[in-house]
Amino acid sequence: MTLQNPPFQPAEEKARPAPAGSGFRASAQRHLSKLVVAPSFAAILVFVYGFILWTLYVSFTNSRMLPVYDLVGADAYVRLWKLERWYVAIENLLIFGGLFIGISLAIGIVLAVLLDQRIRGEGALRTIYLYPMALSFIVTGTAWKWILNPSIGVQEFVRGLGFETFTFDWIVQQDTAVYTLVIAAVWQSSGFVMALFLAALRGVDQEIIKAAYLDGASLPRIYWGIVLPSIRPVFMSAFVILAHLAVKSYDLVVALTGGGPGYASDLPATFMYEMTFRRNQIAIGSASALMMLATVVAIIVPYLYSELKGGKRV
């Protein structure tokens, strides 16, 4: 993405005021651009940055059911990091995030490369791979919940085929529930990764491929050695998007496991909601929200910085 625009400073920044007869209209014209952006910018300032500060402030109080405004220091953070449930959420996020990103990337890349082999019906396949992205997690979660439910879903289906001892009850087990989140999330997002990579593949210079082919490189070698390295920036983009999706994942958990069994499949997002709105621990909820923000910032800011500084050509 380019932020550097061809320079064009229209007449709105006149060095001198317009001559007689201009008055208010001219000065309004001059600042129209700013005026037009102002409402949005003000809204963002208040509703994004102001609210971040607000939440930050509240996280340093001992607010419980209602926000109170007496600062008590980092108490909430101390208590947050003593909570067993928070550790479960963090650990789940690491497991979920790692698997979700890794598998989505792998499937997305494989599908993109395979689809790039002059496949008949490519359009239809692409449409099928990508449609989950158009659906709400709440909708697809309903279907996944049913499929993963041991007594009516896949387990029952396979047992019905005669494999009486077949077990697939991850969703009801404490230590495996989080993996069902991975299944559903990968299902939902891998098509998107495929689309990203397919678009990038189509942008690679055909001449390079021809040259490599003439040099005698095999197709897998061409992809592995030339094509994929040349679209490295897309890995970065895909990673960042998936990572920030992982941190923000909320709907999926609610729809699929509700954070259960118990709180075994809690993620920070559900933890925050639970603390803030159900358990009257507003300060702790705010502290956890800020932890999420810090994580996203740590991922996004370096990425945006490099993109905006024109460092996109690696």
Partner: peptide, 29 residues
């Protein structure tokens, strides 16, 4: 098309909103 001084900063600040974890603004909202 009508870039004013600080337009890039304004855009970057608006853009950041697309990555904001909503949890941060739930309560104040």
């Amino acid at each position: 098309k009508w870039r004013f001084r600080g337009a890039n900063l304004v855009f970057a600040m608006i853009l950041f909103g697309s990555f904001l974890p909503s949890q941060v603004i739930l309560l104040p909202m």
